[in-house]
Design a protein around this nucleic acid. Sequence first.
RNA 1: CGGGGUGUAGCGCAGUCCGGUAGCGCACCUGGUUUGGGACCAGGGGGUCCCAGGUUCGAAUCCUGGUACCCCGACCA
Length: 492
Amino acid sequence: MAKGIPTREEDYAQWYIELVKQADLAENSDVRGCMVIKPYGYSIWEKMQQALDKMFKDTGHVNAYFPLFVPKSMFEAEEKNAEGFAKECAIVTHYRLKNDPDNKGKLIVDPNAKLEEELVVRPTSEAIIWNTYKKWIQSYRDLPILINQWANVVRWEMRTRLFLRTAEFLWQEGHTAHATKEEAIAETEQMLDVYAAFAEEFMALPVIKGRKSENERFPGALDTYCIEAMMQDGKALQAGTSHFLGQNFANAFDVKFTSKEGKLEYVWGTSWGVSTRLIGALIMAHSDDDGLILPPKLAPIHVVIVPIFKTEEEFNRISDKANEIAKALRKQGYSVKYDNRDTQKPGFKFAEWELKGVPVRIAIGPRDLENGTVEVARRDTKSKQVIALAELEQSIPALLDDIQQNIYNRALTFRTNNTTAVNTYEEFKKVLAEKGGFVSAHWDGTPETEQKIKEETKATIRCIPLDAKEEEGKCIYSGQPSKRRVLFAQAY
RNA sequence: CGGGGUGUAGCGCAGUCCGGUAGCGCACCUGGUUUGGGACCAGGGGGUCCCAGGUUCGAAUCCUGGUACCCCGACCA
């Protein structure tokens, strides 16, 4: 067990917080609710960005940047959206400070510098972007617009948790405009698929694709699609959303185009996003009581090499070998760290790199030099084997692939074992209380029923799975007829 | 927004009840011995005790006010 970190069994929430700090991913800043993302944590975000950005580009999107500030009148144009975010907005009301006449060396807000109109610090960018799209779109020839933005947003959350919910967070938000409803829906679904593929292939995180119920829908959207993942405590985490906005924002911002047929029509829209919250998901889905377990495809360091030596002469010989190995692996495209610090002992380094979730560790000592071998340890299973130097260039890629696959399988098995289908409300409550996880059940489709169930069990409808098969059933709460099962869970 | 907690060395904390030279562990620095799973010994450096005011000969400690952050809930990506 890692020093200073409770086990998941003892205190899952605390385990998570401590792990984030001890693994050097992030820390709380002195600004309420805002975190400092440290280099190691940020490099995971960079890996995510690289992979996602490529997927966005491959599906025809381009990047752009829109202002951080949104004038209040612009923000409130789409009423539902504005109302949905109103209670968590930071507002800029002044543009200047001045010396405090009563308190030397201190500053006060200059009352003469009050803004004519308040600026909302964006909690999301639909308003400013649709306000801009209005100027860009006249004809069907201007469509579609397929733009993504990498940005920070601010949501003044009551309670924050590192990565999972912070007052300011980093994300990407795609905002697209289309000539037809069908095309916009296809885009919404395409991006959901992109997110699901990213989660599964890169994060090794199995997800359920589905639609949100009315209660959980994005304010201003006609339909919200999402991917839902299960954490190791059985709680659900929304890992990405893709919204079909219909013509709501086009209406609000008067964005019209002339169709091929010469008719004036409102533009159809979508928006979709994932955030640094994914780092939280990554941690909570895979890691163990010894620290992080990172999927090789997102690990900032794939392989760490730890030398074991007594004398300087030994150290030099081992370093030669280690550098040789590092060079060869780098040539294959891997990120390799040779931990040549002579200030820490091997045991310390082993524990530290395990804490940081480096997928593969290679140890080289005098024994190995003699035998032409190295010791290779994998982080996911903590197993070790001695491998001949000559085989290393073949076995490391295979090992990394295997780790990626193994942690995916592990997460999938966990989810499968913690997903329960129930047919009565009694069973439903029992499963939630005793086992947790996802509960698949029939629901009558009304917000009232969902609300009641939430009040009584804290579980919400995470999604209506896209692949839910049609079956006749009765709502576990109201007994009304239902055509398919939906997924309930307690959520982050 | 409700409840709870905490601000003392870089980090984690004790000391506060009962006022009297500011301490412990880790980390850091120096030297030595160590190095195949979180080393050991010796020596050393480091503090506006969250802020402001008050009581007192004397305040980390008592009183008043403020402030910041954290944790648990409700709300939310």
